[in-house]
Amino acid sequence: MNKFRRAVLWCALVLIILLIVLSIYGAFAGAERAKGFFNSLPLGLYWSALTVMLIAGIGVFRRLVREPALLLIHGGCVLILTGSMWGSAAGHELRKKLLGIEKIPGGKMAIFEGQSDNHVKAEGERGMKELPFHIKLKDFRIEYYKPEYLDIESRQGQHWQVPVEIGGEFSLGADVGTVIITKAFENFKITFEDDKSAAYDDPEPGYNPALEVQIRGPDGGVTTDYVFERYPGHVHPEDKFLLSYHRTVRDYISELAVIKDDKVVLEKNIEVNHPLHFGGYHFYQHSYDEQGRQYTVLEVVSDSGLIWVYAGYLMLCIAVFWHLWLREFAAGRARVRSE
């Protein structure tokens, strides 16, 4: 290996070690600060230098061209770096200045049920930006795992987990009694008429899940309690049991429609792991109205550069297996056969 090639390899090694150190620093800094740090101007220079070094390596080392797998590995890394720089906020800004192409790199949009919107609160910018189409939220819902459970804890420390089945009777033991869940509410409200209270499920917007629970003691005495999902630890001093009602979320689903030129051009239910892709943007389920469940919050992400990154991933994966596995294991199989 001549001196020039050795120098190039040393440079590559230094860049690799530097990135290891920077990654460890970023891990200690936390995701938010690390994101800012790795997208800063000095790091932009580092990414550019790394890309140039990879390209230079392909030019300098003939082996990288002669062996297709090695070429794919290094070419794949170049594509990943180029694609991610192209898709970064700085890449979007640069394209706007040089080519006049304006695209929102990323942001959030809140849409109420039954309404459509095209305004995006772009990341790190004041004011709203507009998409060239509208997104309509037809419905937002949260699905829960079944069965749901009611947790019961006695003051003596005994614990029971009762599946939520309306009308079903569950024994807590001969000396404790039985429990029956008589009603389930999605939006619990209570009215007072003639000094009597009555619980009901309010169909108006709102969200207050609750259970009506009857506990029958061994002496036949019945007490009725209400257990609220959003207010755990709701207990009176005279209560014999601490009741809690907690549901495990299975999925968050927003039913969306894309409207362009007053026509619905696409409909999709988005959920975690299943985003919507339209017009150069991905739309993700981000959060929701925790109080009334009336609106959803979508994360909007530009897809610029993504195809390059994925192409780089594909090249890298195929090539590492080709280079490090296929030849090695083929030789290994031949050895086993010969023995």
């Binding site: 792991n273 985003p275 994360e299 993504l306």
Partner: peptide
């Protein structure tokens, strides 16, 4: 990560340590 959170690289500590 891209499918679930919207980013193929989120600069999360686990991601950075796995990169390291």
């Amino acid at each position: 990560g891209k499918l679930a959170w919207g980013d193929y690289w989120g600069w999360d500590p686990k991601e950075l340590w796995s990169l390291a």
